[in-house]
Design a protein around this nucleic acid. Structure first.
Lengths: 208, 208
DNA sequence: CAATAAACATGCAGTCATGTATGTTTAAGC
DNA sequence: GCTTAAACATACATGACTGCATGTTTATTG
């Protein structure tokens, strides 16, 4: 019953990724063994070891499925409307987190069900840190562009503003994933995002 | 070489907690075995099993060492100066996270080196969620009190304001622990905190 | 149509972590 | 001064989980 067609093999791979995503979300990464995943997918560990090098390779592939380049989300042209770009980015991230089950599960795994340590999973941590740094510099570019376009105060401390933006965005996502009943992320995504930008005009401590 | 005095036994217990704190921080919780901890503390697993029920009991005791009741930090009287209370709370939390190595390590373990799952560690997760809910209701009380004292707009959506406050606070801490070089938490604690409150006056989307 | 290799399944060895049971020593209580 | 039990150390049994080696079958290719 082996040597399936290419499409079938890809389906198997996706099934393994789906199953791993579910189990990692339910039990956490370290408490989920490859045998657990194989059994839940009605396969054997042989299938996993054929498609993936090991557990962390599987985890990485699972995370790659929701990784989208920042440009994808930033549809509004940054050079013309950087404030709109930042707003759209935040709203889309929040709404997608609230409504897209896959993104919700994977983000939850990344934030609350996967340990950042120095050995095997270090590559994963480094990758996440790199993504975060990318995101940081992108937002910083939006901030400085907005200042140049005189959309924000000339003496705005763009570094602090960037820090605040990212803290708010990630804080909202992390807190909601931790306790989804605490507030309605989908309904409030726009209001919470829009609340941020007046701060850049009215907070003296963000000026240089 | 056994049957030490009570003080010595307490010192042993603290040594085990210190060592666990260090190893959990360096390697993550699930990748640190009790044998690792015992060896690093120059003890045996027998000592650990004498002082603690198991690994998660040890972890819980380790976390309790930095748990401080919210009242401790909220020195400013909430009824008279709720805004000041919230400001002081945030600044103290941020500064203490930046300067207190123990708090930094333990918060890092809680946020980035410990998986929230449904089985053994569930008690820990439930406890953290309860603490978060406590904190939420406390901040909400500050917000409503400030509205009553006319320190904040009468039509402020205090729920959203609370959500924003907590997202900012936890987002700042989490992001800084994740990438400490991204910004200077100690130096910027006050400025970042002070930046928040003008938002409550100038953000239309936070009004009802 | 034969050979190859893809796509798994199965089995085994080895390591490692946990929990417990049982020693051992000595501070404390009387 | 004798007993008890606190404060560990040691040893053992048990049960994963991983990685690899080796089947097995069938789509694919020339």
């Amino acid at each position: 019953m082996v040597r399936k067609t290419k499409a079938e093999a890809l389906a198997t791979r996706n099934l393994l990724l789906d199953t791993a995503e579910r189990l990692f979300f339910e039990r956490g990464v370290s408490k989920t063994s490859l045998a657990d995943i194989a059994k839940a997918a009605e396969m054997t560990r042989g299938a996993i070891y054929w498609h993936f090098k090991n557990k962390y390779d599987l985890l990485q592939a699972m995370m790659e499925r929701v990784r989208l380049p920042p440009e994808t989300l930033l549809e509004a042209p940054v050079e013309n409307a950087p404030l709109q770009a930042m707003r759209d980015y935040a709203v889309k991230m929040l709404r997608d987190t609230a409504t897209n089950p896959r993104r919700r599960r994977v983000l939850s795994i990344m934030m609350h069900r996967c340990e950042k340590n120095e050995d095997e999973a270090k590559a994963l941590t480094v990758r996440q840190q790199a993504a975060f740094i990318d995101c940081t510099s992108h937002i910083r570019l939006c901030m400085t562009t907005a200042v140049k376009l005189e959309l924000l105060p000339a003496n705005l401390d763009t570094d602090k503003a960037t820090t605040m933006y990212l803290a708010l965005l990630f804080g909202l996502i992390s807190n909601w994933l931790f306790l989804p009943d605490n507030f309605d992320l989908e309904a409030d995504a726009e209001a919470l995002t829009d609340a941020f930008f007046p701060m850049l005009h009215h907070s003296p401590s963000l000026l240089k």
